[in-house]
Each structure stands twice: as structure tokens, then as C-alpha cells.
Design a protein around this nucleic acid. Structure first.
Length: 421
RNA sequence: GUGGAUGUAGCUCAGUGGUAGAGCCCCGGAUUGUGGUUCCGGAUGUCGAGGGUUCAAAUCCCUUCAUCCACCCCA
């Protein structure tokens, strides 16, 4: 016997109810984004490693220890750990932003080499949107409004909270960073190990440390709000005012910094407390410097990314699971002799309606065939025995409601089915 | 990457050294052309994998893989 093959760690086969929920989330995002005029862009799963180390940041965990990276002949390639860097690269490559302000959305698998747990997988699905060429906070709030629309469509608005913050523009950010490093350096010995390391590489990230002692030190740390210049302050104020006008509730969290390096000005995260340790279902913000950083012309931009798996999982946890689709109609030939006739009937129903029709296959006694019809979840069984076949008729039985079975000529079948709801 | 728990039938699980079990599911019959309820009967296992100890291992030991939880990180 050959060795049984099995799933690679952190990968999943998706089917039935779990997939149904994921597809629902994807569909709602797709329809909502298209309704706001965002255009789908399909991006490759693999990029040069350098794109991510430059675009996302060498010091981030996502890049430094979570990427699937391998050497291909002369260059290092990686499976994408997120979508923004690829999207920006594509916009630069095709010069899409020359005289235009593209609004794009994407969906697909992302890969991170982490220890799997509930709501966290090595291949996971993200849907994201990016708007290029707009520097005002009206775009930031539009992105949030889009996601809010999705939460409402998915009946999740009550379960997901929004946190916001600003990181300021580059000069403000630098001033704050310097002050922060100076402050934290005094307490270096008391910081947790990770934070000590970050002091050099990525001091902002220390702000969202969960370590208790570190948090105490952070309470007194210089806040970004004291270092915002006039432009940065105006952007953030208007951002917040617009959220209020759009009827969106948000909490300002001064320690919200996001894990990825490219953000400026507005940053935001959507959280839930219903998924165990996995709190975050999505996040986003403004990244005015990224296009230039990746070798393009300067171009303001903002975007978000949502974890499709986590949103679907949240619906599951709340009992909002959508069900895998069942056929509408199940055609049962009572013996193999009527099989050809049953296939013709099924073809007629498909041609005359949009109903999904499944035909019984395989041998079996009548009882077993009817049981299969019931189990398929179909609402109607079309029963075909010798009598029906001989007289060009079909017996129609409702499986989910109490209604008397009828036998009708095949020609009348489509209208009978359409009137049967 | 670190720590802890778990892995036995399709599913949920019992079984702690001596013949692998239950419930649900599935199949057949009661009901020769009618499912879903009821009654009767039946089938089903690399006990996660590999190695070791033992007369004997699902059970004890080692290794490994996977899942779950927490940390970390993020979606």
C-alpha cells in the first residue's frame, strides 16, 4: 500500500458549509466594491522577495520570519503575505496612475508561515481595496463606509468595532519617533525582550505591546498627537468629522500603529471579541509614501484588507452560517429502464428554468432512490416510473411541504414548477 | 518560533496491559411504484504514523505528523 498523502500544515480543503460562508463573504464584498466603482485587479501569488522587504518593511514579522521564500535561479521569490505591495507594483508597472486615479480591489490567497490556530492559517484569503491619487481623508472614510456596508449586509455590524488613529505625515512621524525612542531608552532594561529589540528597528510597534510592564511604561510615553504638524492635524480632524457624518462609530486608540511599515496619516482596524485570541478581522490606512518607495512617482494612496476566513468564521460563531447549496429538483427514475426519459426531463427543466436539477444515479430500490432525493435537500422530486414514461408524464412530489403529489404532462412541467412556490 | 492539551468507525466519544465498543449516520427488511417518524436486523476500524518494552500494547516509553488552546504575530 502506498503512503497516504495528507494536507500540508496550515492549508485547508474548503467545502460544504464552511465554503458556503466564505463564498457569501466574497460575494458581498465583490458586489459592494463594484457598486462603489472599484475595479477588480487580479494579482500574482508570487513576487520578488525584495518587493515585500522594501514595501512592507524588513523589520516586520510578516517579512522577517513569516514568508514562504525560495530561490529561483538568480533571484529570491516569495509567496505574497499580503496584497498591497503587489497592487502598488502593478499600478506602477502599468503606469495606471498617470493622469488617472485608479480605485482597485483584489481578492485571493495570502501566505504566512505561522503556527496555525483558529482563524489563522498559512494560506488565508484576503479581500482588499486600494485607491490611488487621492490625498484627502474623504477617500479614507469612503473605504471605511464600504466595509461598514459589508458588515451590515452580513449582519455583523453589531459584532465588529472600529479603532482609528493617525500616524501623521513623514516629518511628524519622524519627530514623534525620535521623542519616543529617547523616552523608551530610559526604561530599556524594564521593557520585554521583543520591545527591546524593536527599540532599534521599529519603535512604533512597542506601542501596541501586550506586555503589562511595557504597557505601564507606554502610558507615559510621548503621544503622536503632540507631534502632529498642521497638515497632519487637519487631515485627522477631517477624517473624524467625516466618519461622524457618515454615521460610523469609531474609537481613537493612540497606540494603534499597524504591523506594516508603510502607513501614514489614517490607520484603522476592525476587531471582534468573538474569535478567541484572533481579534482582528481587518485593517487599513493611508500610505502616501509607498508608491515612491517602490520606485514609482509620488502618489497618495489608501486602502484596506479584510480577512475573509475570519469574517466567515465570525458568522459561523454567531450561528449565521449559510448553507451549502442544494439542488432545487431531484429526478428519480424508479428503475434503470426510465433513465433515458429521466435525463430528457431534466434537460427540459434546465432549459426552461434556472432551477438546478440533479438526476439520480446508481442502482437502488425505490426506497433508496427516494431517500437519496430527500437527502439531496431538493424541494421537489420528479418521479418517473414505467407509467409516466409510457404516457409522457411526470409525477411531481413536494418534499418539504405538505402538498398532494401531482402527475402532469412533460409539456406542462416548467409552468407547474414555476408556480409551485 | 515557544508552552499546554488532544488524536479510537463517516460524526461525537467511551475504553489505562488480556477477544476494539456505544450513540448518531449508513445499508437491508416490515412497506413488490414513494423520502423524512416507528419497529426489527446488519455492515463498518492502518486505535494519526514509525519504532521500542512485554508472553500480550488503543493502553507503557521514544520519535514524528496533525489538530485545538494560549503566547507571539496578524487577516
Amino acid at each position: 500500500m502506498s503512503e497516504r498523502s495528507s494536507l500540508v500544515r496550515g492549508m485547508r480543503d474548503l467545502y460544504e458549509d464552511e465554503l458556503a460562508n466564505i463564498r457569501l463573504v466574497e460575494t458581498v464584498f465583490s458586489e459592494t466594491l463594484e457598486s462603489y466603482g472599484y475595479a477588480l485587479i487580479r494579482l500574482p501569488i508570487m513576487e520578488r522577495t525584495a518587493l515585500f522587504s522594501r514595501g512592507i518593511g524588513e523589520a516586520t514579522d510578516a517579512v522577517s520570519k513569516e514568508m514562504f521564500t525560495f530561490d529561483d535561479e538568480t533571484e529570491s521569490l516569495s509567496l505574497r503575505p499580503e496584497g498591497t505591495a503587489s497592487c502598488v507594483r502593478a499600478v506602477i508597472d502599468a503606469n495606471m496612475y498617470r493622469g488617472h486615479q485608479p480605485k482597485l480591489w483584489y481578492i485571493g490567497s495570502m501566505f504566512r508561515h505561522e503556527r496555525p490556530q483558529l482563524g489563522r492559517y498559512r494560506e488565508f484569503y484576503q479581500v482588499g481595496a486600494e485607491a490611488f491619487g487621492f490625498s484627502g481623508p474623504d477617500v479614507d472614510t469612503e473605504l471605511i463606509r464600504i466595509v461598514q456596508d459589508v458588515w451590515e449586509s452580513l449582519e455583523l455590524a453589531e459584532e465588529i468595532t472600529l479603532e482609528i488613529n493617525t500616524l501623521g505625515n513623514t516629518p511628524s512621524r519622524k519627530q514623534h519617533r525620535d521623542a519616543l525612542v529617547e523616552y523608551l531608552a530610559q526604561y530599556k532594561a524594564q521593557l520585554d525582550e521583543d520591545s527591546q529589540r524593536r527599540l532599534e528597528q521599529n519603535p512604533l510597534r512597542i506601542l501596541d505591546s501586550k506586555n503589562e510592564q511595557t504597557q505601564k511604561i507606554i502610558e507615559q510615553a510621548p503621544s503622536i498627537s503632540d507631534y502632529l504638524d498642521a497638515e497632519s492635524r487637519r487631515h485627522f480632524d477631517e477624517f473624524q468629522e467625516r466618519l461622524v457624518r457618515l454615521g460610523i462609530r469609531a474609537t481613537v486608540n493612540p497606540n494603534l500603529v499597524r504591523g506594516l511599515d508603510y502607513y501614514t496619516h489614517s490607520v484603522f482596524e476592525w476587531n471582534t471579541d468573538k474569535l478567541g485570541a484572533q481579534k482582528q478581522v481587518g485593517g487599513g490606512g493611508r500610505y502616501d509614501g509607498l508608491c515612491e518607495l517602490l520606485g514609482g512617482a509620488p502618489c497618495p494612496a489608501a486602502g484596506f484588507a479584510i480577512g475573509v476566513d475570519r469574517v466567515a468564521l465570525l458568522r459561523n460563531e454567531l450561528g449565521l452560517a449559510s448553507q451549502a447549496s442544494s439542488p432545487d429538483v431531484y429526478v428519480v427514475a424508479l428503475s434503470d429502464d426510465e433513465e433515458d426519459y429521466a435525463l430528457q426531463v431534466a434537460a427540459k427543466v434546465r432549459a426552461a428554468s434556472s432551477l438546478s436539477v440533479r438526476v439520480h444515479q446508481g442502482a437502488g430500490k425505490v426506497k433508496a432512490r427516494m431517500r437519496a432525493a430527500d437527502r439531496s435537500g431538493a424541494t421537489i422530486a420528479l418521479i418517473i416510473g414505467a407509467q409516466e414514461a409510457a404516457s409522457n408524464q411526470v409525477s411531481l412530489k413536494w418534499l418539504r411541504i405538505n402538498r398532494e403529489q401531482v402527475t402532469v404532462p412533460v409539456a406542462e412541467l416548467p409552468s407547474t414548477l414555476l408556480n409551485s412556490n
